[in-house]
Simulated scan of single mutants.
Amino acid sequence: MANIKSAKKRILVTQTKTMRNKMIKSRVKTEIKKVLGAIAANDQAAAQAQLLVAVSEIDKAKSKGIFHKNTAARRVARLTKAVNKMAAE
């Protein structure tokens, strides 16, 4: 355990930021699962609606520095491709 005041503060700040990052990543994963669930159920309207929500959450995570911009772009591209593929079929 840290004895120095600044080290104790760093531990608290790190815990706070870790929890925030986990919450946001969890929210992104949940929205992605909802899109994939709509695709699996062949519900095109729900998939399109959920895609917008998922893209919004991914962009928020990117803007907060939780995802790298290329990671966010890759996830959005793959989700969009899956939804568009379902729409084409």
Rank of each mutant, 00 (worst) to 15 (best):
Lys34Leu: 12
Lys64Tyr: 07
Ser63Phe: 10
Lys34Ser: 14
Leu52Phe: 09
Val13Asp: 11
Lys8Pro: 07
Ala82Arg: 13
Ala61His: 08
Met23Tyr: 04
Lys62Thr: 15
Lys5Val: 01
Asn3His: 06
Val35Lys: 00
Asn84Met: 13
Gln48Thr: 07
Glu31Asp: 12
Leu36Met: 09
Thr16Asn: 07
Arg75Cys: 01
Ser6Tyr: 00
Gln15Trp: 09
Lys25Asp: 03
Ala41Ser: 12
Thr30Trp: 08
Leu79Ile: 00
Glu89Cys: 06
Thr14Tyr: 05
Gln48Glu: 13
Thr80Val: 01
Arg27Glu: 15
Lys81Asn: 07
Ser63Arg: 10
Ala72Val: 03
Leu12Phe: 09
Lys81Thr: 15
Asp43Val: 00
Ala88Asn: 02
Ala41Gln: 14
Met19Arg: 13
Lys25Gln: 01
Lys81Ala: 13
Thr80Asn: 08
Ile4Thr: 04
Ala45Thr: 08
Lys60Met: 07
Gly37Phe: 00
Lys29Tyr: 05
Glu57Cys: 02
Lys22His: 13
Gly37Thr: 11
Gly65Tyr: 04
Ser56Val: 02
Val76Ala: 14
Ile58Phe: 03
Met1Thr: 02
Gln44Tyr: 14
Ala88Ser: 09
Gln15Lys: 11
Ile4Gln: 06
Gln15Asn: 04
Thr18Glu: 08
Thr71Lys: 10
Ile66Gln: 01
Lys33His: 14
Val76His: 07
Asn3Tyr: 04
Ala41Lys: 14
Arg78Tyr: 15
Val55Ala: 14
Glu57Gly: 05
Lys62Met: 12
Val83Asp: 01
Lys62Pro: 10
Ala82Tyr: 08
Lys33Asn: 15
Gln48Lys: 12
Ile4His: 13
Lys64Ala: 15
Thr16Trp: 11
Asp43Glu: 06
Asn84Lys: 09
Asp59Met: 03
Ser63Gly: 02
Ile66Gly: 03
Ser63Gln: 11
Lys33Glu: 12
Ala47Phe: 05
His68Thr: 05
Leu51Glu: 00
Lys8Val: 02
Leu51Val: 05
Thr71Ile: 06
Met86Pro: 00
Met1Leu: 03
Ala41Glu: 15
Lys60Asp: 06
Ile66Lys: 08
Ala54Leu: 04
Glu57Asn: 13
Arg74Trp: 11
Lys60Ser: 09
Glu89Phe: 03
Met23Val: 13
Ala49Asp: 09
Lys17Pro: 03
Arg20Lys: 11
Lys25His: 10
Gln48His: 12
Arg10Phe: 00
Ala88Lys: 12
Gln44Met: 13
Lys25Asn: 01
Lys81Pro: 02
Ala41Cys: 09
Gln50Glu: 08
Ile4Gly: 05
Leu51Pro: 08
Leu12Asp: 14
Asn70Arg: 11
Ala40Ser: 15
Ala47Lys: 04
Lys22Met: 12
Arg78Lys: 11
Gln48Tyr: 06
Glu89Met: 06
Lys17Ser: 03
Lys8Ser: 02
Thr30Tyr: 14
Lys5Gly: 01
Thr16Asp: 07
Val83Ile: 04
Thr16Ala: 03
Lys9Ile: 01
Met86Thr: 00
Arg20Thr: 05
Thr71Trp: 03
Lys29His: 03
Glu89Asp: 13
Thr14Trp: 01
Met86Lys: 02
Ile58Cys: 07
